[in-house]
Write a protein that binds this DNA or RNA. Structure first.
Lengths: 116, 116
DNA sequence: CAAAGACATAGACACATGTAAATATTTACA
DNA sequence: TGTAAATATTTACATGTGTCTATGTCTTTG
């Protein structure tokens, strides 16, 4: 079973929220991304990875940052990976997650983009 | 019972995700905002209001944009209002919701802000 | 004051979600 | 080969969430 199972989604989308009404389809596409970020643990995970050297971090480092079970962290990382916010690479025994900066920036542009 | 019951929260927060790790407290503060946005219907509501003339819209207009019951729309608007993403004002029989642009922009800055 | 319209609240229900314990998988190394 | 370490998967469960129906509140107008 490969690590590439989960298809990497395109995270670009549409014009900013405030410019024109989001279509139902667009909203259905963006909501899962926000949902993935809309959890305190996942927010911190994303931040830990993104702010780490090279924008990537080993799971071993991440587990220690929380008082949560290892499977729980693994679950949250999977959620972030599945929506395309984190890339994943196995190196030896370790797995590294890497922040997808363009995805974050597209999301930010959607939310905060100026009208017109 | 006044319309001002729900306290208006400050939505500013912290340095961008990618700059330094979000603290637990910060994450707990931001997650509810993202959670509020992380629903297709609320995303469209937010977009409808924000992109509407003057950044505000009457509930009467919003109800018609969805094939959902009026209480359901009312519920979603309440969620967005409670986290400080929508302001609320009653004018005669009608209620107008207004987008809090700074809140959206703060959120965008948190998510998409450059490291360093 | 009564009736109608705009919106909110309450209650209920099906379904999603965060977490943990137990277990599996993969890799390195003795 | 066998054992240990790193990470993922499975299963289960309590709690949260989106939706509806029914009802309440407030405002305008006859």
């Amino acid at each position: 079973m490969s690590l590439e199972l989960t298809p990497v989604q395109t995270v670009a989308c549409c014009s900013p929220l405030a410019r024109e009404p989001l279509s139902e389809k667009e909203a259905d596409g963006v909501a899962p991304l926000l949902k993935a970020l809309a959890d305190p643990v996942r927010l911190r995970l994303m931040s830990l990875v993104a702010s780490h050297e090279g924008g990537e971090a080993c799971v071993c480092d991440l587990n220690d940052a929380f008082e949560l079970s290892q499977p729980t962290i693994s679950h949250h990382l999977k959620v972030l990976h599945e929506v395309g916010l984190l890339d994943r690479e196995k190196r030896g025994v370790w797995v590294y997650y890497k922040a997808r900066t363009e995805a974050l920036q597209n999301l930010a542009a959607l939310i905060g983009g100026q009208a017109q």
